[in-house]
Every structure is written in structure tokens, then in C-alpha cells.
Amino acid sequence: MRRTVFPHKFLPWLLLAPQLLVTLIFFYWPAGQAFRQSMLKEDPFGLSSTFVGLANFRRVLSDPGYLNALQVTVVFSLLVAFIPMAIALFLAVQAEKITRGKGLYRTLMIWPYAVATAIAGMLWLFMFNPSFGTLAWPLKQLGINWNPLLNPNHAMILVVAAATWKQISYNFLFFVAGLQAIPHSLLEAAAIDGASRRHAFWTIVFPLLAPTTFFLLVVNTVYALFDTFGIIHAVTGGGPGKATETLVYKVYNDGFVNLNMGDSAAQSVILMLIVIALTAVQFRYIERRVHYG
């Protein structure tokens, strides 16, 4: 605890004012409104509204469209949480085996972090565009009727690929940092005991990376749930049909395109609960790391 502080009473409030104002006006007030609207039903002209309790939630949760979006989100998020992690861990281990040129590889690996998610989606759409995509062309030559604009599975593969591509660099940097933090002595001891590298990796290195892995799992899930909106919006628009409509995309679509306030607000509140749960999980983990690390 700090013993010496400045004695001013008014100045700290002045310093805090900008941040507090921004959070109150643009965060707390709208979030409160989302809660309020989620329990109201507006008439079609938006002139009056009546309190309907949890009716909006009941309707949203029994709506096949919402359940479809939920299912799409679960599949999409699982793939986007695990695939970049697997690729990044594999590459991070390879990078650690190299003594010269490591820095150059790292510099090249971090590029996608700087690319906007929406543009990541567009880049993959350019490459795999059924009419002029250079990488769609060999698929056609092989007789595969590749068309992400019409085939739901192809659309899902394309958005997962773009989302994965963008997230590899982030996972890579954290795994490299994680690997570098593993004590040399442990691996030397394993080598002296005659453990093969593969055996040492799965019994020593991988368990020691658990905190990094778990952290990335949470970060990737949050990324898949929220940040990938740009990819979906720019590449598929939730289609074809509703094959790539995620929860966030549906909130946007219902609130802005279909102008269904009550349902959109109820969906917002459900998303808020998901974020709160994920953040809670993340902080439990941070506490653990503080205790043991």
C-alpha cells in the first residue's frame, strides 16, 4: 500500500471525470437500456411499450432461428478456439528448435494480427472466390464443386479458415513466450534420463504450458464469439441460408435490419451473461496463476 499520496480532494475527480463520463454514457446507460428493453414489448410504431417480464427471453430461446444461431456459434467457436491453437503450438515448438533466423520467422508470423478481421475475410474470399479465386481454381480442376456462396459447408469452412488465419499469430506469440519460460533444468534432466523429445514434450512441456493454453482458449473463444463479426458480415452475411449466422450477427441483424427491439435486447442480455461468465472464468485462472507462479 502506498504511504505517500497527494492531499488534493477535488483534483482526482477531475482526472477521473473523462473516463467515468465515457463509461457512463456509452457503456452503463446503454447496457441498462438493453436490460429494460429486454422486458418490454413495443407496439409496431414504437409509440408505447408494455412490460412483459421474461416473455421476450422465452420467445427468443424457443425460436428455431435463435437455436440455429446458437448451434452455428458453438461449432464455429469450437473450431476457431482450437485450430489456431494447435497450429500455433506446433509452429512455436518448431521455432524454438531453430537457433538462427528465429527473429525473421517471428516478424513474418505476426502480420495477420494487424489485418482487420473483415479484411481477413475478404482476403480469403478473394483467394477462394468461386469465379476467379486462384485457390478455388485447382479445386474446380479436381472436380470439386466449390462454392462458398451457395454451399453452407463451404461457407463455414471459408469463415473458419479466415478467422483461424487471423488468430494464429496471437497464439504463436504467447506459446513462444510460454516455451521460453520453461526451466532449462527440467528438460536437461529429462534428456539425461533418456526421455525421447516427443515423450518429454507431452509429459513435461505440454503440462507446463497449461496456463498459456487455458488463457488462449478463453481469448480465442471471446474472439470467435465477438470479434469475428466482421468476417461474417463481409464474407457471407450469415448465409447461405442461415448457415453462418452467429449470435452476434443475429443481434445486429434483428436490431438493425429487422428492427425487432425486444428480441434484439433479450439477445443482448444473453450475450452479456455469456461475456460475464467467460470473464469470471478468466479471472479465476489469473488468481491461480498468481498463487502458483
Binding site: 457503456f27 446507460w29 437500456q33 438493453a34 463479426f229 445486429y252 427491439m261 443482448s268 450475450l271
Partner: peptide
């Protein structure tokens, strides 16, 4: 409270 969960309000 990311933007995504309070778009409309």
C-alpha cells in the same frame, strides 16, 4: 460490456 452486447441501445 463490449459493443457487441449493447448494439441497439
Amino acid at each position: 460490456l463490449p459493443v457487441e452486447v449493447r448494439i441497439q441501445p
